[in-house]
Design a protein around this nucleic acid. Sequence first.
DNA 1: CATAGAAAGATTTGATCATATTTTGAGGCG
DNA 2: CGCCTCAAAATATGATCAAATCTTTCTATG
Lengths: 245, 245
Amino acid sequence: MQELMTQASLPPSNARPRTVPRTDLIAADQTTAQMPAHERVYQQLRGRILFGEIAPGQAVTIQGLTVALDAGMTPVREAIRKLISEGALVFQGNRRVSVPQLDASSIEQITFLRKTVEYELARRATQQMNRTTIKRLQQIDAALDAAIATGDVGDYLRQNYQFHHVFYSQAQAPVLAGIADRLWLQFGPSLRVVCGRFGTQSLPDRHKDLLNALRSGDAEAAGQAIVLDLEQGMEQIAAALTRID
Amino acid sequence: MQELMTQASLPPSNARPRTVPRTDLIAADQTTAQMPAHERVYQQLRGRILFGEIAPGQAVTIQGLTVALDAGMTPVREAIRKLISEGALVFQGNRRVSVPQLDASSIEQITFLRKTVEYELARRATQQMNRTTIKRLQQIDAALDAAIATGDVGDYLRQNYQFHHVFYSQAQAPVLAGIADRLWLQFGPSLRVVCGRFGTQSLPDRHKDLLNALRSGDAEAAGQAIVLDLEQGMEQIAAALTRID
DNA sequence: CATAGAAAGATTTGATCATATTTTGAGGCG
DNA sequence: CGCCTCAAAATATGATCAAATCTTTCTATG
């Protein structure tokens, strides 16, 4: 009964999804837990963009999302507005909102920012690292390898993002982590294009080096591993871009 | 205002140039042009936060803004959501949205980011600099001095922001400039507190050094001037914070 | 007897939706 | 080939319901 009917094929009658059971706040999955509609829509749309389910250049419409995500217009508007301000969507024309297609200059700027921000995050996270978080990162890395082996691009992107996200959240630096997240949202869609073009095999994986650095508490080595990892990733995006031209 | 749009001035590739509407005719003044209500509300609220008219820690309510800015609820909601994602507002409790009060850790992170991002912006802007922009910066700097002389804190903050904004917009680096803008939005309110505490006299002004560097085209000197400027400003914010404790 | 704590009611605020209005893009017709 | 009409999409408003804070009152205990 806690399942709100998500895709009712019935005509859009005025259902009342506002009755909230306050019992299972922590137990349930956060994505489906009781959450304001605008937050749910934001998370869903963010996930679709971040993991390349909406291709760069593809346009999104408010009314298209209201039916795709089964939500009202107000939550969809708020989510789109928020994602535009985060750079995950671009307001192109008066009526066209789409996933951005990176140009060479944007890629260069994002790479510069990532190198400084994520290097710093890696250093700080390493100094705050504990055993349980290392275990968690190992698990994610294993799932990531499995995704590469099976060629599951979506799962690979998810695990890769999760790896970095968990790692950076350990740094106790929300401002830096927020910038990193914002940047991720901008190159994420293009990362999927790279995977579709070259497959998951060619993707770099410096996570083993990073995990070794974490175990020995070597912040400098961890930062270098991260920088190498992201440099390779961004280079592949740039390479895919020039291929398109 | 439109700096979030990735300006792809590169050749538009041979994707599919479909219809080519008149795009260059809309270069008119956008402040007086007709503007969607949500954009107007966003700009107004952003200005109030950025220049400290809403004190750090002060709460804002949706319904309070609908009457203060004479707008409907939907535009106000969108503006608030956007400003939250930019860090200009923080979503504290279930129902509390307020202007953030910086702690020592946030100040340290913002300072780190500003030093790297604005140094880079200053270098690039100096290399792209032209005579008319220097003139414009001189005018803003004069107005800034006038504001200091008369002790008009609000005008000082506005001119100071304008100076940096015009300068950075010359760098042709919208991603970097977007980060700088976002950071400005986070420490802006606290800057006003500093002014209210110590007056405009004690505020640093490295703009003269910067202008000299621009005239000689010395990117390195321009970057150093900017870093000195922002370091002094952030130190004053940090000092004001410890005073409060 | 007074005060503190709790419970219940009232008021304010937030979230969402349906609908009216405006704007824009497109196609038809002169 | 351009202008005019039309339809679709986006904007914006107010209404409505839920929830949280505050307010008041009642009761129990020192």
